[in-house]
Design a binder for these strands. Structure first.
Lengths: 334, 334
DNA sequence: CCCAGACATTGGAGCGCTCCAATAACGTAC
DNA sequence: GTACGTTATTGGAGCGCTCCAATGTCTGGG
């Protein structure tokens, strides 16, 4: 910067003004500085700037799982709002573990980003709460007391999935759980609530938000000889893995077993998959979250807000009435 | 930091030493400092640190497209190496456009990251070359003179794809181009080379590395009434989109038309897709690239290196011999 | 009991920038 | 030509840290 100032024959302060294109700089000097900067290949040092300015004009985004395109859609929405408000985005990924997530947040805190968005949080609420004390922070996908959040009504979503299957005539339904995945607990609750109110068995098998988890669950179900007539998978990724393994094992979907997912990611609407699922307005959620962070940054609001968006059932080709023999068995059993 | 020093009854310098856990600090002081830091909720300021240290211990990763899980695998590999060497990762995404990519690189340069990895570069080489003058920079997916790179032998990969289809008996083959996508040009070249040497028509339709592009191309082919017996799509994403639209239009894959992709992403091996494709050792490529960046950072090497890994054909269910009537037509035409 | 040599601790300069109060330059009206 | 209100420009302090040379503290051998 000193070099540029010297080369342009002005003071360091003026260079600073030009670089931030302040209003009150004469065209003559502005050009002189810009020229010199260009000639010397000068590039402002963001670290020094954010140190002096005490703000970084940057938002940190913690992506729970880079392999899940659900998060890519969220980022699209976030970027849109950040861009429009002159903020840069910095991403970090957490490989679905709470330790990596904490590390990512910690890193952003140390970099002094102006706001943090945690997509699909896996960590405990107190980590997030503590982090949000110093920096505006919003979670997407699940909410914690005292922390801003944008969530889908996962309880309702779980209900919708269960209701859809029950309405098709299914009685033997398994829920493939999402483990510590964001929103998984509520989806399970919603499912369980419906099943209970219908007087049906609540069968839940452990899992997580991955394709592999779906594969493993299917294998277990097949091997145990207790394949149900329908499965509600905690997310699309798991659903796809499940369908895969089920098909390989000779259980066709939906003829022999119906499968419903959650998220309505790109995967789900592929013709060759045609996954029935619960839609979350992903891009919209990203936008909303970014707006909440920026609003808090500006207003200094202390009270947490939680924005709930509504899920929607999307029926495609992986769900159908249960196979006939099963219906007969049930009927004769009455 | 001053507060912590005061609270612990030591100098600022000592706090600094403790925070970086330097060796020669007495246990007594170390605990005093750590306690105070904890009590006050002190968190080192990374911007100030990197300013003073003149290095950030951070690598910047520019991801061309967050929706393409190909890049997620690369990041896995990069992270592994970075982690092992005490480096943090910071990601940025480029939405497949060269302007966004340039901006992302520019941002990393301003943040003074220690090294930059550009996954699937879209921008011109000179941008990258210029950036790499100040900071170790490596591209993955395509290479530019003077810039470190890790690439797959895309020319050979394109050849393999074409050869596979020709060997199955196809004569009427279309290449769905990858546009400005990394490696697309070489894949096309490889394809064209084989077709030419076989005396076959070189049909190329424009496209890019997205599902949507595949959909659009299929629609165009169908509408023009010139659906070939086989298509080589520039990447898996496009291949999947293509298959989707083809199926909807009543052209079953592979019975009526064969499709081969490129990358061997997670998508490809899903049972319901079972995409024949060309494999790239993704995680391995990520590791390699990270190693190259770190090596250059340490050695200050000036000469660019380019590491080429070999592609591999993975045959699944989307390719088969062409439908019989076509073979007959060709035979009778001889 | 003193002193060399190891180990611990500290003050202060400096990293590259922004911010602010102060000064310089410029018009314009009288 | 002077005084005044603008608009441009500048020096210097300070952001929170690390680094280095200097100082302080503690051993154990003579």
């Amino acid at each position: 910067m000193d070099d540029v100032a010297q080369a342009a024959g002005v003071s360091r302060a003026l260079v600073s003004l030009v670089m931030r294109n302040a209003p009150n700089v004469s065209d003559k000097r502005r050009h002189a500085v810009l020229d010199a900067a260009d000639r010397l290949g000068y590039r402002p040092n963001a670290a020094a700037r954010s140190l002096a300015e005490r703000r970084s004009n940057t938002l940190g985004v913690v992506v729970n799982d880079l392999h899940n395109t659900f998060f890519a859609d969220l980022v699209d929405g976030i970027h849109e709002i950040a861009q429009a408000n002159g903020f840069r985005l910095l991403l970090n990924t957490a490989w679905r573990t709470d330790t990596d997530e904490r590390e990512a947040i910690e890193a952003f805190l140390e970099y002094r980003v102006d706001g943090i968005l945690v997509l699909g949080p896996t960590a405990e609420g107190d980590t997030l709460l503590e982090a949000s004390r110093n920096t505006p922070l919003v979670t997407i996908g699940s909410s914690f007391p005292g922390v801003d959040a944008v969530v889908n009504d996962d309880l309702r979503g779980g209900e919708m999935a269960a209701e859809h299957l029950v309405q098709l005539g299914h009685r033997d339904i398994v829920h493939l759980d999402g483990g510590n995945g964001a929103g998984a607990a509520h989806r399970r609750e919603g499912f369980a609530g419906v099943m209970e109110s219908m007087g049906l068995d609540i069968r839940v098998v452990p899992g997580e938000f991955t394709e592999r988890s779906g594969l493993a669950a299917a294998t277990r179900l097949v091997e145990s000889g207790s394949v149900p007539t329908a499965v509600f998978a905690a997310n699309d990724l798991a659903a796809v893995g499940l369908i895969d393994a089920l098909t390989v094992a000779g259980h066709s979907v939906p003829e022999s077993v119906s499968v419903i997912g959650y998220d309505n990611t790109h995967l789900a609407h592929l013709q060759h998959i045609g996954l029935t699922t619960i839609n979350q307005p992903r891009v919209e959620m990203g936008r909303l979250a970014a707006e909440i962070v920026l609003e808090r940054l500006e207003s200094g609001r202390r009270q947490a807000v939680c924005h709930v968006v509504t899920p929607k059932l999307v029926v495609r080709e992986t769900t159908a009435p249960p196979p006939v023999r099963v219906i007969q068995r049930i009927e004769s059993g009455i």
